[in-house]
Nucleic acid binder design. Sequence first.
RNA 1: GGGCUCAUGGUCUAGUGGCUAUGAUGUCUCCCUUACACGGAGAGGAUCGCCGGUUCGAGUCCGGCUGGGCCCACCA
Length: 822
Amino acid sequence: MELPKNYDFKESEQKWIKEWEQKRLYSYKDKGTKKFSIDTPPPTVSGRMHIGHACSYTQGDIIVRYRRMKGESVFYPFGTDDNGLPTERLVESLKNVKSKSMGREEFVELCEKTIKELKPEFIADWKKVGISADFENSYSTIDAHSIKTSQKSFLDLLKKGRVFQEESPVSWCVHCQTAIAQAEFENVDITSNFNDIIFKQGSKELVIATTRPELLPACVAVFANPNDERYKELKGKFATVPLLNYEVPILFDESVALDKGTGLMMVCTFGDKEDVEKWYKYKLPLKSAITEDGKLNEEGKQYKGLTIKEARKQIIEDLKKENLLLTQKPITHPVNVHERCGTEIEILKTKQWFIKVLDKKQELLKAADQITWYPEFMKKRYIHWVENLQWDWCISRQRFFGVPFPIWYSKKTGEVIPASDEQLPVDPLKDKPKVLPPNHTYADIISESDVMDTWATSSVTPQIALDWADHPEKFKEMFPETVRLQAHDIIRTWAFYTIVKGIYNNNAVPWKNIIISGFVLDPKGQKMSKSKKNTIAPQIILEEFGADALRYWAAGSKLGEDLPYQEKDVLTGKKTVTKLWNASKFTLMNLEGYNPIQTSASSQGGTQTPEIQNTDSLEVMDKWLLSKLMKIIKVSTESFENYEYSKAKHETDVFFWQTFCDNYLEFTKYRTYGEDKQPTEHGTQNNTKLAAQKTLYYALLTQLKLFAPILPFITEEIYNMYFKEIEKEESIHTSSWPEINSKLIDEESEKAGDLAVQINSEARKYKSEKKLSLKTEITTLKIKCTAEQKELIQKTIKDLKATGNIKEIFFEKGETLELLFS
RNA sequence: GGGCUCAUGGUCUAGUGGCUAUGAUGUCUCCCUUACACGGAGAGGAUCGCCGGUUCGAGUCCGGCUGGGCCCACCA
């Protein structure tokens, strides 16, 4: 068998992607073996896969491919997250439209159309990196099945009393014009001004420091610390709000910092969480001055109609005019903004749906212990987040493109009218409830027009994939899933919310294990971002180096650890692919005329790998290689079991380059080529050649298998060209994972082989120092060593002479090993 | 301010308390040896961030410090 001179990764990768798909190699089949199910993040259809996706999915895929080879029944669905704000924003910018100024139906249609356009190309990128998901079993978080599942989850929680609707101060994005959840906050430092503003108390001037003068019309009280000597006499008095000239009470609370600003603070409805707390605690009146689209309303009096920014500017100007602005200090302070658009978050009193989480903190913390976290410390991030939760989970969004709430309301009583399970999926704007409350007609109901938060649906990915809505029995068989794979940035959202739903809906944590991958950083270790222009497109890497090379790089990071992108590592991957090709080419060349089936003692299995059953015929160097190979199988298997793919990769890599290529192939060259030069007596096959062939066959196949999860294309190519016919398994990826053959562990041969390697390397060094070609013959080698060492060295003397071009070798007694060349 | 995490040759990285600290890349020298120049052989290059402790023995365990990164809190 002769392989072509060069490996064309582009051609090969394309071919295998197509073939795997045609053969439905990765479709879910219940083989009656241990089940392995994996929950991977449905990426948002953003047009293109980014490098972080490529890396993290590859890491997951490596684990899945290992499991598949172990013979487990792999359930690996693939989803896309198409619903909600991210898609709306994408469509708005792509199609240059504004959802709120378009008809709802028209906009939803446009979203659906856009997704359809983008999706195939989007998914193609995942296939290109060799992700072995069951793409036939793919879901979209906005398809009918996902909507049904998500609505079922909601109705279930409604029955269980875990969701509630309330009109309360809620974080709000004035740009997206919707309520948002705590998990969607992003903290940024903003430069602003700290303004010392004069309030009047009778004729007295009270100085209040604020960064938000535009909220003056929403001011409902002034607060001081009860221990603040400066303000004690203000008790029971009122202050006049400047410019707007109305009175608010002066109150006292321990939470007011004495040293911040002037020690006086104004409470507005609402500037921040602090205001909300005082508003509740002191039952203050509500004075909302900000509209849902971020303008001042009639409460703003003369400032009505101005945007927040304009109002701020105008109020400052007016304060200056009236000499009510004492000082203005520029400051930089942290502000919560909406992660999707960067707009500063407002707090508005609106009616929203919530999932109760604050009262179940203890259970949610306990859940962390029922899941094994890889790496373990990531568990703390989850715990930390749960402990610090401030708000219940607000799941309603005043948007168009999302999963509708499966409910209507009664105009008469205001009560909630839920859809019935059997009518899901339902759109209350189009459909009618099956069951009406007594004395109601369809004219008496109003439809809920809000949609659910994206996370309310992506938090049920296990339930969607395992078909909780339609096949609850099948669902029970597989739930909880084996593994969740995700990055650490969404522990507080995706991991947390999925756990919430698992526990609330199904009384169990959703997976037994969670593996958290790190971030891809730029070569300098900086976070990648579009604004920094330091992003790297995986498509370019794929084009230039190939998927195997990209995967090789991705396999290099430890789980949970951030990985700087280094092109040299991808290049090393490509070199490994090339080396694998060349080493295989050489090996297969040497297997010319070799019939592996004959040497297989176990003919019963028929299609089994021709195992090496008998080591008697093997030479020391063969035993040396195989014994070391067994240890690599052991380490690699153990590492994969613990999701430590980078360790498995490293060990296999070092073995392949050093043990196999640099040494074993060199040591056996003289045995494998030139049979016609030294025909053996009786014309039968040379025994040492046959031994080498046996070893080569088994060692190469094993190494291909060990590399297969990481380098699926090159290994499949080589397997297909030679091994497939003999092994009778259609793909290396469905072939069995190598097992340790304890008969092949041979410490003595390892020692002897190591000595031979050492001596050979000294010989090379000698030649290099003398600037001699490696072909140069060494006349004599005098070896000083112990009797024990001599015995070992004598076992490989033939190999040493041939490999190192050494004519004669003499021994002399010595304490330590000493080599004298001449 | 709280929490987590990291610190190893120029750069990136491996490293279950134990003999000369892994590999890659880059540098230098030699070599197109019939698998591979996307290669081979060799050389040089690390007081394993700093201080202290535990131990016969610490890159590895403990405490403190310094410096990165991330998360959370701080928004008057």
